[in-house]
């Protein structure tokens, strides 16, 4: 059962990635070009999922929207992971006041309400995909930093690290070659879950009108749909399903990785 679930999630992610990459070949219409066919219901005139208030094809918009969601979600989570690994390694390796200072900073970012913070920063500095990715990465690294730090602290005393030290490796080599590969499992799990939350955060920012105005994003589509809830349900229903499916898929993947990489949990959960 759980294996099937994992494969479904994986297939779903792969499917969305393919949609995003080959959007211009798959989309039946130009998602940017509107026309006279405004607010058509799904199925009318070859518009499988209907059209929006400007006559743009919802299905084509959805296919192109996968680009922003996946690009932002994956890049933000990846950048956050790298940042977290670097900070966590520094804190775990140096200890002392470096550790203390870095952990206070991570506590700070962990306590603060991420969404409100992201809203204010993006409102101050302007939207745009790159800026959103940077903001989400800056707000999401602490959890991974703490994980890596904890792993380093516990692995530092292990015999294989001792052996590496005796064989003449320096600190950075030990961290990069001996400790990090062994500490990676929880980082991958958290990273996968981070993709899900980054996609949700991006959708929320775009829903607040802070996305990139020149790109199609699912959150932005929901923003546009809000005034038309009474006339055109399809404008809201389909983008939301797309967001939910992708986020669900990454959450399932994270859970599955957690089960696979953490055998102890398998027994209790």
């Amino acid at each position: 059962m759980s294996n099937l679930r994992t494969w479904l999630a994986f297939a779903l992610i792969l499917g969305f990635v393919l949609l995003a990459v080959f959007a211009q070949f798959i989309a039946p219409f130009d998602p940017f070009r509107g026309g006279a066919d405004a607010l058509l219901a799904p199925g009318a005139k070859n518009y499988l999922l209907g059209t929006d208030h400007l006559g743009r094809d919802i299905l084509s918009e959805l296919i192109f929207g996968a680009r922003v969601s996946l690009a932002v979600g994956i890049s933000a989570a990846l950048s956050a992971s790298i940042l977290g690994i670097v900070v966590g390694s520094l804190a775990g390796f140096f200890g002392g006041w470096v550790d203390g200072a870095l952990m206070r900073v991570s506590e700070f970012f962990q306590t603060l309400p991420r969404f409100v913070l992201a809203l204010v920063i993006v409102a101050f500095f302007g939207g745009g995909v790159l800026k959103v990715i940077i903001v989400l990465a800056i707000l999401s690294w602490p959890q991974i930093a703490r994980l890596v730090r904890a792993q380093i602290l516990s692995l530092r005393e292990s015999t294989f690290v001792e052996a590496a030290r005796l064989s003449g490796m320096n600190g950075i080599q030990i961290i990069a070659r001996e400790i990090l590969p062994n500490a990676l499992a929880p980082v991958i799990v958290t990273g996968s879950l981070d993709i899900a939350s980054a996609i949700l955060l991006e959708a929320s920012l775009s829903f607040f009108g802070l996305g990139d105005a020149n790109l199609i994003s699912w959150g932005g589509m929901l923003n546009v749909a809000q005034p038309y809830l009474r006339q055109a349900w399809w404008m809201a229903v389909f983008p939301g399903i797309a967001i939910s499916l992708v986020v669900l898929a990454f959450n399932i993947l994270g859970d599955a990785l957690n089960d696979a990489l953490n055998p102890r949990l398998q027994e209790t959960a």
């Binding site: 899900a196 929320s204 829903f207 809000q226 229903v237 939301g240 967001i243 939910s244 986020v247 669900l248």
Partner: peptide, 14 residues
């Protein structure tokens, strides 16, 4: 799992 994945503002719209 589903409840945790669905954007709440979209749920509001639905």
């Amino acid at each position: 799992l589903v409840g945790y994945s669905v954007p709440d503002f979209w749920l509001g719209q639905i």
